[in-house]
Amino acid sequence: MGRRSRGVNHAAQMSREAGGSKDSQKRRRLHWSEFSRFAARIGHTLETVNEAEDWMLEFFVWFLVAGAMKPGTLANYRASLSVIQGTTGQDMSRSTRSRDLQLERRDRRGRHRARTQQEFNDLLAAAQALDASVVHVIRLMRWLGLRMREALMCGKSLETWRDLILQGDLRLPIERGAKNARPRRTEVLADHVDETLEAINAALAYCRDRDFELVSGCHSGLKSAKSRLKLRFDQLPMRRELASHSLRFTYAVDFANAALDRGVPPVDVLTQLSDRLGHGPSRVKMILEVYCRQIRHRFPEKIQLPSDFVPRQRTRNLQRSATGRPDDQLQGDGAAPRRRGRVHGRRVKINHGGKQTKHKPY
């Protein structure tokens, strides 16, 4: 094994220790591999992650910019390198800040929007005629604000969700398929408890005899099921502003409208919504500009949203949540983010042909 290959393997090991989904770990490794190849071209072969220096990262960023890489993709590259180096105790994020390098910032607003009730009903009718399994995924995404992967993998959580709702608890844990393997809790909209419970019961009845898999592909496993679901979304069609992510936008708009109608302070609305969507309580500015763009007029024109917002510690004190339920109050001046520990889990063995020899069902 050559020196550069050892460096890429070391980066892959650091990525695994940093945690996250397998897709995230794979992307980090590929991004580091490109950086390592670039460093070798300028005469520096990296055998370990620690051998990377600030100026190499800055040169690599300008190399990507010269190749007309889009700001969003460039930000993903820098984030991957930062996570890998952070695992070794390095902090080189300051050397590649967009503001310091005068780079174009990505536009996070996107092109999705919330669906109207009629558009949602038409989508359900089209999905029913195409594939009944897709109907359950769509309804769960809309009423719980789930990502596509979360809805695809939630079959084994449906009974727990049903029991919690029947007990009066509207905060539901999302433990399977969460982005970067970060478990979160969504919240059932108080005005749509019946619709949500009906969607959960229907999905549970459908997948109970199918090993709790809502969608099954041509082959066993998550990858095949995800490919089939994406194909069905394209056939409906669910594209552009009304792609599958528009269902999360619909949930977000309903959540925010319900909160504002109940008199919840605007900043608290954005903080709670960010937490329910799985972005954490610190992404309030992005939530306002992206998910609440259609109802921006309901928020103050000048709203105090500090750019260095730090999630505050939770206590057992209670306040009213956006949907009228008691919620954990956020208080305190702030706390440093908790460092993710080493993640232990089963690995999928790969032979020399690149095929998986162990199958881990989703």
Results as ranks from 00 to 15, higher is better:
64 L>G: 05
342 R>D: 15
263 G>K: 02
302 K>T: 12
297 H>Y: 05
330 L>C: 09
210 R>H: 14
362 Y>L: 12
91 D>Q: 05
151 A>Y: 06
7 G>C: 11
120 F>D: 04
343 V>C: 04
96 T>E: 03
15 S>F: 06
259 A>N: 01
277 L>W: 04
127 A>V: 13
143 W>N: 07
362 Y>V: 13
344 H>G: 08
189 L>R: 09
179 K>E: 04
93 S>T: 09
34 E>K: 10
286 M>P: 00
218 C>Y: 12
62 W>G: 01
186 T>K: 07
153 M>H: 07
215 V>T: 06
99 R>A: 08
48 T>L: 10
228 R>P: 02
97 R>T: 10
252 A>Y: 02
217 G>F: 07
106 R>M: 01
185 R>K: 04
173 P>F: 04
259 A>F: 01
195 E>Q: 13
192 H>C: 07
5 S>A: 13
145 G>I: 02
186 T>Q: 09
7 G>E: 08
31 H>Q: 05
152 L>Y: 11
353 G>K: 14
305 L>A: 02
339 R>W: 11
360 K>T: 09
259 A>K: 01
98 S>R: 09
183 P>W: 11
342 R>A: 15
125 A>R: 15
276 R>D: 01
20 G>V: 07
60 F>V: 03
233 F>W: 03
319 Q>P: 00
82 S>K: 10
207 C>T: 03
40 A>S: 11
6 R>L: 11
144 L>N: 01
67 G>Y: 04
227 S>M: 15
237 P>H: 10
101 L>T: 01
330 L>W: 15
336 A>N: 11
124 L>I: 14
327 D>T: 12
30 L>S: 09
290 V>C: 01
114 A>K: 00
168 G>R: 05
189 L>F: 04
215 V>S: 01
319 Q>N: 07
242 L>P: 02
165 I>G: 06
341 G>D: 10
357 T>A: 10
280 G>N: 01
355 K>G: 05
63 F>V: 00
94 R>E: 11
31 H>W: 03
120 F>S: 10
180 N>D: 14
237 P>T: 12
70 K>I: 06
286 M>N: 00
